[in-house]
């Protein structure tokens, strides 16, 4: 099942499919001599939830970084909402609607929760600052309680919520999440995925990178499996769950 396998993207009905959403074609990324991403092509339609799976070092994080403009690709094409992203700095991509919750969260540890959130807001984009803040606090009531606390003093789960909240402040239309469940207790992971499901229902497109595939495939409509920098499998989540290779390699983990 190497051929592209289109699933019905929910929330994108009736729109011109060609130009909308995220499209990656033939992406190649290197760190020096070391080729991390060989050849990755994938799409995320508006409002669609897609999982990007694969073992450690397969190039998942690198793919997200390339989409977000943190590392320049050597080859390939990335477009979002019909705009070619080549050479575009990250802050312009954020203004275009791309959001990334990075590996390691990358919060500002010496600043308060609220300051972290405020910094995520892009003046002139989306709702006003106060409205965006209120919305994030509705989604994560815990963050409101802790809003005067320094971000560095939060627990792992709270930090992950803050990282997601901070990315939501920019009113993204596609949110990329890099291993959101890493290092979190199972109960917190469930909570987190409930929130992500809610965001998906609101029409936010999600591209989720995970090593632990159960939750991701339960949420996503489709999935891609990355190995040594190449897409080796992709299809609807239900199909991927049943796939013998995937069963063997990852689901047993």
């Amino acid at each position: 099942m190497r051929e592209p396998h289109r699933s019905e993207p929910h929330g994108a009905r009736g729109r011109a499919p060609a130009a909308r959403g995220l499209k990656i074609r033939g992406l190649q990324v290197r760190y020096g001599e070391f080729v991390v991403v060989q050849d990755v092509s994938l799409t995320v339609a508006p409002g669609e939830i897609v999982a990007l799976l694969g073992p450690n070092g397969a190039g998942k994080t690198t793919t997200l970084r390339a989409v977000h403009g943190i590392i320049p690709p050597v080859d390939g094409e990335i477009t979002y909402e019909g705009r070619a992203l080549h050479g575009m700095p990250t802050h312009e991509r954020v203004a275009l609607g791309l959001g990334l919750v990075p590996e390691g969260r990358e919060l500002f540890p010496g600043m308060t929760v609220e300051e972290n959130l405020e910094l995520g807001h892009v003046p002139g984009r989306g709702p006003a600052l106060a409205d965006s803040l209120a919305d994030v606090y509705r989604l994560f009531p815990l963050l409101r309680e802790r809003r005067r606390q320094q971000a560095g003093t939060l627990s792992g789960g709270e930090q992950q919520m803050l990282a997601i909240g901070r990315a939501l402040m920019a009113a993204p239309t596609l949110l990329m999440l890099d291993e959101p469940s890493l290092g979190l207790a199972p109960r917190i992971v469930d909570l987190l995925y409930d929130t992500l499901r809610l965001l998906g229902e609101r029409g936010l497109a999600l591209l989720i990178v995970e090593q632990y595939v159960h939750e991701a495939l339960a949420l996503a409509a489709r999935g891609y499996v990355l190995e040594s920098g190449r897409i080796v499998l992709h299809g609807p989540s239900a199909q991927l769950r049943e796939h013998p290779n995937l069963q063997q390699t990852y689901l047993s983990v």
């Binding site: 991390v36 070092g57 994080t61 970084r65 390691g104």
Partner: peptide, 8 residues
């Protein structure tokens, strides 16, 4: 050249 990645 771009900043070195922090991981991998």
């Amino acid at each position: 050249r771009p900043a070195r990645p922090r991981t991998r």
